[in-house]
Protein backbone atom coordinates (compact mmCIF):
# COMPACT_ATOMS: atom_id res chain seq x y z
CA UNK A 1 0.00 0.00 0.00
CA UNK A 2 1.41 3.34 -0.97
CA UNK A 3 1.60 6.34 1.33
CA UNK A 4 -1.55 8.40 1.18
CA UNK A 5 -0.33 11.72 2.50
CA UNK A 6 1.19 14.64 0.57
CA UNK A 7 -0.42 13.59 -2.68
CA UNK A 8 -3.04 15.48 -4.63
CA UNK A 9 -5.08 13.52 -7.11
CA UNK A 10 -7.31 16.39 -8.19
CA UNK A 11 -6.48 19.58 -10.02
CA UNK A 12 -7.68 22.94 -8.76
CA UNK A 13 -10.69 22.87 -11.10
CA UNK A 14 -11.84 19.56 -9.58
CA UNK A 15 -10.80 17.39 -12.51
CA UNK A 16 -8.50 14.40 -12.11
CA UNK A 17 -4.79 14.25 -12.92
CA UNK A 18 -5.50 13.11 -16.48
CA UNK A 19 -8.14 15.81 -16.93
CA UNK A 20 -11.18 13.56 -16.48
CA UNK A 21 -14.30 14.57 -14.56
CA UNK A 22 -15.15 12.40 -11.53
CA UNK A 23 -17.80 10.44 -13.46
CA UNK A 24 -15.86 10.18 -16.70
CA UNK A 25 -14.39 6.93 -18.03
CA UNK A 26 -11.12 6.69 -19.92
CA UNK A 27 -11.35 6.41 -23.73
CA UNK A 28 -12.63 2.90 -24.50
CA UNK A 29 -11.70 0.81 -27.54
CA UNK A 30 -13.26 -2.54 -28.39
CA UNK A 31 -12.50 -4.91 -31.22
CA UNK A 32 -13.81 -8.45 -31.81
CA UNK A 33 -12.48 -11.36 -33.88
CA UNK A 34 -8.87 -10.28 -33.44
CA UNK A 35 -7.45 -13.84 -33.31
CA UNK A 36 -7.66 -16.47 -36.05
CA UNK A 37 -7.40 -19.69 -34.05
CA UNK A 38 -9.84 -18.88 -31.27
CA UNK A 39 -13.57 -19.51 -31.70
CA UNK A 40 -14.13 -16.00 -30.40
CA UNK A 41 -11.84 -13.18 -29.34
CA UNK A 42 -11.77 -9.54 -28.32
CA UNK A 43 -9.33 -6.77 -27.50
CA UNK A 44 -10.57 -4.13 -25.08
CA UNK A 45 -8.76 -0.99 -23.95
CA UNK A 46 -9.67 1.39 -21.15
CA UNK A 47 -7.08 4.15 -21.54
CA UNK A 48 -3.70 2.47 -21.28
CA UNK A 49 -5.15 -0.79 -19.92
CA UNK A 50 -5.18 -3.36 -22.75
CA UNK A 51 -6.71 -6.81 -22.34
CA UNK A 52 -7.05 -9.63 -24.85
CA UNK A 53 -9.62 -12.41 -24.39
CA UNK A 54 -10.13 -15.62 -26.35
CA UNK A 55 -12.80 -18.31 -26.14
CA UNK A 56 -12.40 -21.95 -27.16
CA UNK A 57 -15.37 -24.26 -27.08
CA UNK A 58 -17.74 -25.70 -26.25
CA UNK A 59 -15.28 -28.58 -26.64
CA UNK A 60 -14.37 -31.85 -25.01
CA UNK A 61 -12.02 -31.14 -22.12
CA UNK A 62 -8.57 -32.72 -22.36
CA UNK A 63 -8.92 -34.07 -18.82
CA UNK A 64 -11.99 -36.22 -19.37
CA UNK A 65 -13.05 -36.18 -15.70
CA UNK A 66 -13.81 -32.45 -15.82
CA UNK A 67 -17.43 -32.79 -16.86
CA UNK A 68 -20.85 -31.99 -15.50
CA UNK A 69 -23.63 -34.27 -16.84
CA UNK A 70 -26.19 -31.52 -17.42
CA UNK A 71 -24.15 -28.45 -18.34
CA UNK A 72 -20.84 -27.13 -19.62
CA UNK A 73 -17.94 -26.39 -17.31
CA UNK A 74 -16.71 -22.80 -17.59
CA UNK A 75 -12.96 -22.49 -17.28
CA UNK A 76 -11.44 -19.04 -16.89
CA UNK A 77 -7.83 -17.99 -16.69
CA UNK A 78 -6.98 -14.38 -15.92
CA UNK A 79 -3.28 -13.89 -16.52
CA UNK A 80 -0.95 -10.91 -16.72
CA UNK A 81 1.79 -10.76 -19.34
CA UNK A 82 5.28 -10.36 -17.79
CA UNK A 83 5.68 -7.01 -19.61
CA UNK A 84 2.26 -5.64 -18.61
CA UNK A 85 3.44 -3.94 -15.41
CA UNK A 86 6.17 -1.39 -14.67
CA UNK A 87 8.30 -4.06 -12.98
CA UNK A 88 8.36 -7.43 -14.76
CA UNK A 89 5.69 -9.75 -13.42
CA UNK A 90 6.67 -13.39 -13.06
CA UNK A 91 4.60 -15.42 -15.53
CA UNK A 92 3.76 -18.01 -12.83
CA UNK A 93 0.16 -17.50 -11.67
CA UNK A 94 0.05 -15.39 -8.51
CA UNK A 95 -2.50 -15.71 -5.69
CA UNK A 96 -4.11 -12.54 -7.04
CA UNK A 97 -4.51 -14.09 -10.50
CA UNK A 98 -6.01 -17.26 -9.00
CA UNK A 99 -8.58 -15.18 -7.11
CA UNK A 100 -9.41 -12.95 -10.06
CA UNK A 101 -9.86 -15.96 -12.37
CA UNK A 102 -12.51 -17.21 -9.93
CA UNK A 103 -14.19 -13.83 -9.53
CA UNK A 104 -14.39 -13.33 -13.32
CA UNK A 105 -15.68 -16.88 -13.88
CA UNK A 106 -18.39 -16.27 -11.30
CA UNK A 107 -19.28 -13.02 -13.07
CA UNK A 108 -19.84 -14.95 -16.31
CA UNK A 109 -21.64 -18.03 -14.90
CA UNK A 110 -24.99 -16.19 -14.54
CA UNK A 111 -25.10 -15.22 -18.24
CA UNK A 112 -23.65 -18.16 -20.19
CA UNK A 113 -26.31 -20.73 -21.09
CA UNK A 114 -24.11 -23.63 -20.02
CA UNK A 115 -27.04 -26.08 -19.85
CA UNK A 116 -27.16 -26.12 -23.66
CA UNK A 117 -23.78 -27.91 -23.83
CA UNK A 118 -23.68 -30.78 -21.33
CA UNK A 119 -20.40 -32.63 -20.76
CA UNK A 120 -18.30 -29.97 -22.50
CA UNK A 121 -15.92 -27.21 -21.46
CA UNK A 122 -15.98 -23.57 -22.50
CA UNK A 123 -12.52 -22.08 -22.04
CA UNK A 124 -12.00 -18.35 -21.59
CA UNK A 125 -8.44 -17.06 -21.61
CA UNK A 126 -7.82 -13.49 -20.53
CA UNK A 127 -4.37 -11.98 -21.05
CA UNK A 128 -3.62 -8.57 -19.62
CA UNK A 129 -1.22 -7.00 -22.12
CA UNK A 130 -0.83 -3.71 -20.30
CA UNK A 131 -2.05 -3.02 -16.77
CA UNK A 132 -3.01 0.52 -15.83
CA UNK A 133 -5.85 -0.11 -13.39
CA UNK A 134 -9.19 -1.84 -13.91
CA UNK A 135 -7.74 -4.99 -15.49
CA UNK A 136 -10.32 -7.39 -14.02
CA UNK A 137 -13.29 -5.33 -15.23
CA UNK A 138 -11.67 -4.74 -18.64
CA UNK A 139 -10.98 -8.49 -18.76
CA UNK A 140 -14.61 -9.25 -17.94
CA UNK A 141 -15.76 -6.90 -20.71
CA UNK A 142 -13.37 -8.55 -23.18
CA UNK A 143 -14.54 -12.03 -22.10
CA UNK A 144 -18.18 -11.05 -22.68
CA UNK A 145 -17.35 -9.87 -26.21
CA UNK A 146 -15.24 -12.95 -26.97
CA UNK A 147 -18.07 -15.28 -25.82
CA UNK A 148 -20.55 -13.47 -28.04
CA UNK A 149 -18.02 -13.53 -30.91
CA UNK A 150 -17.69 -17.31 -30.43
CA UNK A 151 -21.45 -17.58 -30.88
CA UNK A 152 -22.01 -18.99 -27.41
CA UNK A 153 -25.62 -18.41 -26.30
CA UNK A 154 -25.85 -15.93 -23.45
CA UNK A 155 -28.73 -14.45 -21.44
CA UNK A 156 -27.12 -11.03 -21.70
CA UNK A 157 -23.82 -9.28 -22.29
CA UNK A 158 -21.78 -8.23 -19.27
CA UNK A 159 -19.50 -5.29 -18.76
CA UNK A 160 -17.40 -4.04 -15.90
CA UNK A 161 -15.87 -0.91 -14.44
CA UNK A 162 -14.30 0.04 -11.11
CA UNK A 163 -15.30 2.96 -8.91
CA UNK A 164 -12.72 4.39 -6.56
CA UNK A 165 -12.86 6.59 -3.50
CA UNK A 166 -10.01 9.05 -3.55
CA UNK A 167 -9.61 11.81 -1.00
CA UNK A 168 -13.21 11.25 0.05
CA UNK A 169 -14.61 11.57 -3.47
CA UNK A 170 -16.09 8.85 -5.65
CA UNK A 171 -14.57 8.59 -9.12
CA UNK A 172 -15.39 6.34 -12.04
CA UNK A 173 -12.92 4.00 -13.75
CA UNK A 174 -9.82 4.57 -11.62
CA UNK A 175 -6.44 4.14 -13.23
CA UNK A 176 -3.32 2.74 -11.60
CA UNK A 177 -2.04 5.98 -10.07
CA UNK A 178 -5.46 6.70 -8.55
CA UNK A 179 -5.76 3.10 -7.32
CA UNK A 180 -2.39 3.33 -5.56
CA UNK A 181 -3.59 6.25 -3.48
CA UNK A 182 -7.26 5.33 -3.20
CA UNK A 183 -9.07 4.79 0.10
CA UNK A 184 -11.23 2.22 -1.65
CA UNK A 185 -11.51 0.40 -4.95
CA UNK A 186 -14.84 -1.15 -5.91
CA UNK A 187 -14.88 -3.25 -9.09
CA UNK A 188 -18.37 -3.93 -10.42
CA UNK A 189 -19.54 -6.23 -13.23
CA UNK A 190 -23.13 -6.37 -14.41
CA UNK A 191 -25.53 -7.59 -17.05
CA UNK A 192 -27.83 -4.56 -17.44
CA UNK A 193 -30.30 -6.31 -19.76
CA UNK A 194 -31.26 -8.77 -17.02
CA UNK A 195 -30.66 -6.38 -14.11
CA UNK A 196 -27.98 -8.47 -12.40
CA UNK A 197 -24.77 -7.45 -10.68
CA UNK A 198 -22.45 -10.39 -11.32
CA UNK A 199 -19.09 -9.12 -10.02
CA UNK A 200 -18.85 -7.08 -6.85
CA UNK A 201 -15.87 -6.46 -4.61
CA UNK A 202 -14.76 -3.72 -2.26
CA UNK A 203 -11.15 -3.28 -1.24
CA UNK A 204 -10.98 -0.42 1.21
CA UNK A 205 -13.13 1.57 3.58
CA UNK A 206 -16.49 3.04 2.57
CA UNK A 207 -19.76 3.96 4.22
CA UNK A 208 -22.89 2.17 3.06
CA UNK A 209 -24.12 5.39 1.39
CA UNK A 210 -20.88 5.66 -0.56
CA UNK A 211 -21.16 2.03 -1.64
CA UNK A 212 -24.69 2.50 -3.02
CA UNK A 213 -23.76 5.78 -4.72
CA UNK A 214 -20.65 4.19 -6.23
CA UNK A 215 -22.67 1.17 -7.32
CA UNK A 216 -25.13 3.42 -9.16
CA UNK A 217 -22.24 5.26 -10.85
CA UNK A 218 -20.81 1.93 -11.97
CA UNK A 219 -24.17 0.56 -13.18
CA UNK A 220 -24.86 3.67 -15.24
CA UNK A 221 -21.41 3.36 -16.84
CA UNK A 222 -21.87 -0.37 -17.47
CA UNK A 223 -25.06 0.41 -19.40
CA UNK A 224 -22.94 2.49 -21.76
CA UNK A 225 -20.17 -0.15 -21.91
CA UNK A 226 -22.65 -2.89 -22.85
CA UNK A 227 -24.23 -0.64 -25.51
CA UNK A 228 -20.73 -0.21 -26.99
CA UNK A 229 -20.28 -4.00 -26.93
CA UNK A 230 -23.50 -4.39 -28.92
CA UNK A 231 -22.41 -1.81 -31.49
CA UNK A 232 -19.03 -3.50 -31.96
CA UNK A 233 -20.63 -6.93 -32.39
CA UNK A 234 -23.26 -5.62 -34.78
CA UNK A 235 -20.74 -3.77 -36.93
CA UNK A 236 -18.67 -6.94 -37.35
CA UNK A 237 -21.61 -8.94 -38.61
CA UNK A 238 -23.13 -6.19 -40.72
CA UNK A 239 -20.09 -5.84 -42.97
CA UNK A 240 -21.34 -8.49 -45.39
CA UNK A 241 -22.23 -6.88 -48.71
CA UNK A 242 -24.72 -8.50 -51.04
Amino acid sequence: MARKDNVTLFREDGTRLDGRKPDEMRPIKMEVGVLDNADGSALVEFGRTKVLAAVYGPREPVQKYIVIPDKAVLRVRYHMAPFSTSERKSPAPSRREVELSKVIREALEPVVLTDQFPRTAIDIFIEVLQADGGTRTTGLTAASLALADAGIPMRALVGGVAVGKIQGRLVLDIDEVEDNYAEADMPVGAAPDIGLITLFQINGVMTREEVMKGLDMALEAINRIVEMEKEVLKSKYMKVEV
Partner: peptide, 13 residues
Protein backbone atom coordinates in the same frame (compact mmCIF):
# COMPACT_ATOMS: atom_id res chain seq x y z
CA UNK B 1 -18.04 1.09 8.10
CA UNK B 2 -17.74 -1.36 5.20
CA UNK B 3 -14.09 -2.38 5.09
CA UNK B 4 -14.29 -5.12 2.46
CA UNK B 5 -16.75 -7.04 0.34
CA UNK B 6 -16.72 -10.04 -1.94
CA UNK B 7 -19.45 -11.62 -4.03
CA UNK B 8 -18.61 -15.28 -4.28
CA UNK B 9 -20.66 -17.89 -6.12
CA UNK B 10 -22.29 -18.63 -9.41
CA UNK B 11 -25.26 -16.22 -9.48
CA UNK B 12 -25.79 -12.46 -9.70
CA UNK B 13 -27.62 -10.00 -7.45
Amino acid sequence: RIVGLQKTGEAGY
